[in-house]
């Protein structure tokens, strides 16, 4: 009976943790995508200084939420985001609009991809 109680508690903790993590990941992904869209808008209008400020905002937000990803997701995914973000920052500072825009596209894909792997879907189970 003790084992059953322990198992029920573990099930409840894992289920609650799973739901919380999926929601958290979706929220963070949405927020990151939103800031990334703002970066893209600034780049399209060739306002590189504003774009650079938005990139800093992306960095700050990512730093705040990083621990959640590191605790549950593959660290490689986060490394890819950081590398692309670093490239975007350099292209923006150098005023290379086209390259910077390409990097925002890559980031958009990576941000959207974050929660996709963890959603309770048949494709993900398979």
């Amino acid at each position: 009976m003790k084992s059953m109680i322990a198992v029920l508690i573990m099930t409840a903790v894992l289920a609650a943790g799973g739901i919380w993590y999926m929601n958290k990941l979706s929220d963070v992904s949405e927020e990151l995508s939103e800031i990334n869209c703002e970066v893209r808008e600034e780049l399209e209008n060739r306002r590189y200084k504003n774009a650079s400020q938005k990139i800093d905002e992306l960095y700050r937000y990512l730093d705040e939420e990083e621990r959640y990803f590191e605790a549950f997701s593959d660290h490689e995914e986060l490394d890819k985001i950081r590398m692309t973000l670093s490239e975007l920052e350099e292209y923006t500072n150098a005023g290379a609009g086209t390259e910077a825009l390409a990097k925002t596209n890559v980031l958009e894909f990576l941000f959207e991809h974050l929660p996709k792997n963890y959603r309770l879907r048949f494709e993900n189970i398979l």
């Binding site: 322990a6 894992l14 605790a71 549950f72 660290h75 490689e76």
Partner: peptide, 23 residues
């Protein structure tokens, strides 16, 4: 170290849950 610790702990606990329920 690239794989989060939870990637090992969660499946282990899930197996325990399955095993105890099966028993």
């Amino acid at each position: 170290v690239n794989i989060p610790l939870t990637a090992g702990v969660i499946p282990v606990f899930t197996l325990v849950i399955a095993e105890v329920i099966t028993s």
